[in-house]
Simulated assay, not measured.
Amino acid sequence: MNDHADQPGKRLQGRRIVVTGAAGGIGRSTARLFAQEGASVALLDRDKENLQVVAEELAGWAFPVDLTDDEAVTGAVGEAAAALSGIDGVVNAAGIMFQGLASEVSSKDWRRVIDINLTGTYNVVSASIPWLVQEPSATVVTIASAAGLLPNAPGLTAYAASKGGVVALSKALAAELAPKVRVNTVCPGMVDTAMADGFRANVGNYALNRLADPIEIARTILFLTSHESSYVTGAALAADGGRSFH
Rank of each mutant, 00 (worst) to 15 (best):
A175M: 09
T142I: 07
A218Q: 11
Q7M: 09
A62R: 06
H227E: 15
L84R: 02
Y206N: 12
E79G: 07
V140K: 03
V19E: 02
Q52N: 12
D70K: 15
I114F: 00
V90G: 02
P214Y: 04
M1T: 07
A81V: 11
A212H: 02
D69K: 05
L156G: 12
V141M: 03
V54R: 10
R210S: 04
V203Q: 08
D6H: 06
T157I: 09
G9E: 03
E49Q: 07
R111A: 14
D66V: 06
V19D: 06
P188H: 08
Q134N: 09
N152T: 15
T225A: 14
L67R: 03
T220Y: 01
V133M: 10
L177S: 04
A93F: 07
V73L: 07
I114M: 04
N209Q: 15
A76C: 10
N92V: 03
N123V: 04
V183D: 06
V166C: 02
D109K: 02
R32P: 00
K171Y: 06
S229D: 04
C187L: 02
R15M: 08
G75H: 04
H227V: 12
V113P: 01
S126A: 15
N92D: 05
T139A: 15
R200W: 04
F245R: 14
D192T: 00
L224S: 12
P179K: 09
D192A: 14
K108R: 13
T185E: 05
G60Y: 08
S103D: 11
A175D: 07
A160M: 05
G100Q: 13
E79D: 09
S40E: 14
S103V: 11
A201C: 05
A146S: 14
I17G: 01
V140E: 02
Q52L: 13
D197K: 11
A196E: 08
P64M: 08
S170R: 08
K180E: 15
G204E: 13
P188C: 12
V140R: 00
T142R: 06
E56N: 14
K171R: 14
D6M: 12
E176W: 03
Y159H: 04
E57Y: 10
A42F: 03
V186I: 13
F223M: 06
D47K: 12
G148K: 03
Q13P: 00
A218V: 10
G120F: 01
P154C: 06
P151V: 09
V167K: 00
A153Q: 14
P154G: 01
A138Q: 02
W61Y: 14
D213Q: 15
E104F: 10
I221V: 15
S85N: 14
L224K: 11
L224R: 11
N209G: 13
H4V: 01
D70E: 15
T121A: 01
C187R: 05
R46D: 08
A239W: 02
L12V: 03
